[in-house]
Design a protein around this nucleic acid. Sequence first.
DNA 1: GGGCGCATGTAATGAGTTACATGATTGA
DNA 2: TCAATCATGTAACTCATTACATGCGCCC
Lengths: 173, 173
Amino acid sequence: MDRELLLLGILRREAMHGYRLVEIIETELRACTDLKKPTAYFLLGKLARAGLVTRTRTRDGKRPPKWVYRLTPKGEETFQALLRKNLGAFMPPKFPGSAGLAFVDVLPPEEARHLLAQRIASLEAYASQAEALGNAAEHAEQVVSHERAHLRAELAWLKDHLNKRLGRAGSTA
Amino acid sequence: MDRELLLLGILRREAMHGYRLVEIIETELRACTDLKKPTAYFLLGKLARAGLVTRTRTRDGKRPPKWVYRLTPKGEETFQALLRKNLGAFMPPKFPGSAGLAFVDVLPPEEARHLLAQRIASLEAYASQAEALGNAAEHAEQVVSHERAHLRAELAWLKDHLNKRLGRAGSTA
DNA sequence: GGGCGCATGTAATGAGTTACATGATTGA
DNA sequence: TCAATCATGTAACTCATTACATGCGCCC
């Protein structure tokens, strides 16, 4: 449902082919969803069959042809309906990574500290990718801003947890 | 994978039957995952076949029998491995609701404001459930604390967005 | 010439949901 | 007695992923 919204919304701004679409979703919009290529192609086929987009064949020189997808008026209608539905409701995100937090006490404190430090490093690496494209996320400024806010909250929570709940130790400088 | 971690971790603390397990996951642990009953029963069967848990039949008076699941030593091993893996890495959450944020500008500002106000209300309703069980989340204190942190961040971001990006209007008090 | 990136797809598989089905107990 | 809650499960279906397969162009 949200995937359709994304596809339609991007195509609304600019007609393009599937490959590029996936590229955009995997970078600027990675915080919303995790759309793989085969799924995207399948979805685009479905949208085309439903008359929400048209596909036209184009060729660049002698390269194999691309399929350019373009929004139809019916697609625009559907897009707006999906958009209103999406904006009007809060959809709770899932944090699969927080499952382990319920059981931190099981491990010896120093190991727990070590693992959480690793997690923080991994989070920072992920966050730096969001910073990297920060300047020009033409397709999704707000989504990236929203993502950054949550990454900051996550980092703060983890550090706080490390300090307050898991004592202090010299291991993390 | 994280679902297995949750099931094993809860059973580790206390042997119990599937129905109760799902109840716990749907309330205290709703922030991690969204496990439906049939999925839980299926997963428990899988864990039993893999020798990570045992199931024993019990009857309460004349009620239909329950299956009580109990962690085995092998289950404990697997649990610890999954726990270490989970704690050591950051798993980026997905925010399906943020898809619409990319396209807010499409709508007339007052409608956008109205819809986001609705979303905030819906978020507050959801958050109040987390507050409600706040006192005694015996199985998942940290998970609930983590969830609350993100809900606060979400609320702050939405309000900020409403103020800074969508001008001011008298509609919201 | 060889490997990487562009560009598209198919097929097999798997995971999870919905809807359905059952049956006992408890409380209104 | 009727509805809700407890308790478990099956079957059909949808959705998405992985792995596979193809082929051109570009750069080293």
